[in-house]
Write a protein that binds this DNA or RNA. Sequence first.
DNA 1: TCGAATACCTAGCGGGTACTAGGTTTCCGA
DNA 2: TCGGAAACCTAGTACCCGCTAGGTATTCGA
Lengths: 199, 199
Amino acid sequence: MSTGRERGGYAKGRERRDAILAAANEVFAKRGFRGASLATIAKQVGLTEPGLLHHFASKEELLLELLELRDQHDDERIAQARAAHTTLHDLLVELCRQNADRPGIVRLFTILAAESVDEDHPAHDWFFDRYTLRRRQVAAGVAAEQDDGRIDPTLDADAIASQILAMFDGLQIQWLLDPRSVDMVAVFEAFLERLRRRR
Amino acid sequence: MSTGRERGGYAKGRERRDAILAAANEVFAKRGFRGASLATIAKQVGLTEPGLLHHFASKEELLLELLELRDQHDDERIAQARAAHTTLHDLLVELCRQNADRPGIVRLFTILAAESVDEDHPAHDWFFDRYTLRRRQVAAGVAAEQDDGRIDPTLDADAIASQILAMFDGLQIQWLLDPRSVDMVAVFEAFLERLRRRR
DNA sequence: TCGAATACCTAGCGGGTACTAGGTTTCCGA
DNA sequence: TCGGAAACCTAGTACCCGCTAGGTATTCGA
């Protein structure tokens, strides 16, 4: 029920919270949750470690709020893209294109998703739920395209949804390791293109 | 030029080294390189931390030897599978099937690959080289299949190679997070099947 | 069987970790 | 403007980190 903002506080505090979240995004993206330290994040926004902990009770709470914020941003981003693009194909390509301009966020997700495979990881449940949801959303989109005759109707929508997410994640790893090795957007689009073709 | 075994040593020592590498595999797979501690690994094989460091000079050296060993194993595994399966399709499905029975190793690679995106990570170069090599190998295999008429010759072999590796990695993440959500082998095979079909 | 190499231990170093206690300064609404 | 809340600091806790120094016990080839 809480929005994470019911703390109120002064304007200065709210700005700091945002700055801390931005710094945490960077540091977690570079070193993962376990490899990152609160001291590093604190220093990046000109605070001491206890200064940071005044705004977020613990390292784990910081991560969880970061993910919650990201959920909101992503939902908005997807809603906007959905409004601007009529087909699933165009929508997915647009999201991929956006990611190609935000390596920081792509890194954050790539490393956190891998870390979170461990059930003890604080973001495990979040990623579990996220993948479950996204698979359902994409599968629904695929099914709709099949009804409209834009995707081969003999394909299994759930399997295709898993494949689309897998291709998204997998290409990101290669792209992050060596951006020049893979034209992420083009290769992803070529993959989607093959779904469109009929036998 | 070194094989990592020129140290010689007694039989007991060689057994311990193997046991340490096996334990490191487990612990790194669960917590990543940065999240893992030498003490945990040492305890798992009944050693103290300095006892472990008698066999491996540093945590980083332990990781690097683990990866070197894995390279050897994988090359053997691929060579065997290549001998037993005539087509690229069958070969890849067989490797995927084997991975479905070794979640520990899949976890190790998933988390280390994500961590190693950071250039400061000790395994960065290893993963960079590994992906470069695998892409080249798979692209060559795809090109051969195109010559034989088993894959649509209008497709770009390099792009397809990236897609195959991406699908491999991406499905593994979903499968590790929730094995029941994805039939990894079946979904991967369905993906490959679509390459075979002509327009 | 003897002795040098190996295996492994205890003790400790320097530094980092998340987090707490308790205080001072700054902010801002009543 | 005044007073309580919020922002933030210094100091400190208890513990973990990779790694080293220096010793003893074990192994196994000559």
